[in-house]
């Protein structure tokens, strides 16, 4: 099953490689990983999307907690949460494709960030499935380039992850 792990980690050189190294050394999957400093600059927050049975996820959580630089680990998928991912996609947009692409972008509540006479660069935010759906809705041939951030997540309501 897919899980989203939120991790608070000391903002120190090497912390990222300790965490990614743990996943590769123990044979766990990483679907995506995002990391950036928090409002407290001594700490970073990481979101890792991984997959595994309950036993595997339990081990991953324990192993992460064992790392000296890891301050806290929460499995967001254990409760209500919000998940967002940002995608930039450059598409071919010439002739009548331009209107069609603009309409589709509006339907998915995306924004066109950059325009040339032959292309659009579209920004789209949402859960991963929405981004997949957008890519599915346009003809594969017109996609010139895509870049995705991987998921970031946060608990709903009173669920708060901080020290």
């Amino acid at each position: 099953m897919r899980h989203i792990l939120s991790i608070l980690v000391e903002n120190e050189a090497g912390a990222l490689s300790r965490i990614s190294g743990l996943f590769s050394a123990r044979g766990y999957n990483i679907e995506s990983l995002t990391v950036a400093p928090t409002e407290d600059p001594t700490m970073s927050r990481m979101t890792i999307v991984t997959a595994g049975s309950d036993d595997v996820i339990e081990q991953i959580t324990k192993q992460l907690n064992k790392l000296v630089e890891v301050v806290k680990v929460v499995d967001l998928t254990e409760g209500n949460h919000i998940e967002r991912e940002l995608m930039l996609v450059k598409v071919r947009a010439a002739g009548k494709e331009r209107d069609e692409m603009k309409r589709l972008t509006d339907i998915f509540r995306g924004r066109i960030l950059d325009v040339t006479d032959k292309s659009y660069t579209i920004e789209l935010t949402g859960p991963g499935e929405k981004l997949d759906a957008f890519l599915g809705a346009i003809e594969p041939g017109v996609i010139l380039e895509t870049v995705r951030t991987g998921a970031s997540g946060i608990g709903r309501g009173e669920r708060i992850l901080r020290v």
Binding site: D55, E58, Q59, K62, Q63, N65, K66
Partner: peptide
Amino acid sequence: IDPSSISKRVK
């Protein structure tokens, strides 16, 4: 002493 040793190979 190590939580990750518990239920690692055997429940």
